[in-house]
Amino acid sequence: MTQATALETDTTLTPARLNHLQALEAESISILREAVAEFARPVMLYSIGKDSSVMLRLAQKAFYPGKIPFPLLHVDTSYKFPEMIAFRDAYTKEIGAELIVHRNEEAIAAGANPYTLGTQNCCGLLKTRSLLDALAEGGFDAAFGGARRDEEKSRAKERVYSFRDQAGQWDPKNQRPELWNLYNSRLRKGESIRVFPLSNWTELDIWLYLYAEKIPIVPLYFAKERPLITRGGQMTLVHNGMKLLPGEEVRTEKVRMRSLGCLPCTGAMRSEADTLPKIIEELLTFRRSERENRAIDHDEEGSMEVKKREGYF
């Protein structure tokens, strides 16, 4: 945990009461270890975002002094921010993790994009299909994901061990009851389980932990002057090879990303927060939820639930 508390625990003979982050950390580590003990071939979905960064640190802690005993899987839509890819490659190398990158090359070659397909179909091809293919190719029976229950309404009902049928689909009405910390890992051939070690963390917990643990994150989270345009009502960062539509003008503003997805579908927000404490301070005064700038959640009422039923994380 934080240096101060680790020291405290170390020098006293009676253990201190755990604060909420220590309690969440202990629970997450236990979930990671339980899954590694019980599944034949786990993998960790690594999205490069802040939640993935926390999950990765928890995995390092869970298996210390050993290395992380499973590969990381990044589903690359080809629309990710270049800063994300650079960070991914450097950081996984630094910590010595095994990285698998999977792309739906067929759909990418066919020109799949959110503008002509709509975000629903584009996600379906480049994320959901690609993810299911990668899991099948790797023969993975369990996949760790960084989803949190506080993110979105349909996620509030998600189990820590989320059962998926042979087609990778989620049936919200037929979930296994989950009691205490006794997780049911039993599967038949072809079935799998998504394991969510961060289920009980909130967005604020994630930022506090990143701060307390000094965990590196993609620089896009910090405010900086960046070139951008307004498209579809959101501020979209300009990148190499982007075609401007008539009437679009590039301008520069001090912005940051609150959550990271694909470039065309993740909006930037105006911000002065260029350090973690400033981000946390800003978060505490926020009156809007973090997924609000994610176009994919707003296609229709309950759209995340529809995606999850199909196999999206």
Partner: peptide, 10 residues
């Protein structure tokens, strides 16, 4: 290393 660990530490 810890000198002491208690419920519910991992």
């Amino acid at each position: 290393d810890l000198h002491v660990a208690a419920y519910p530490q991992s």
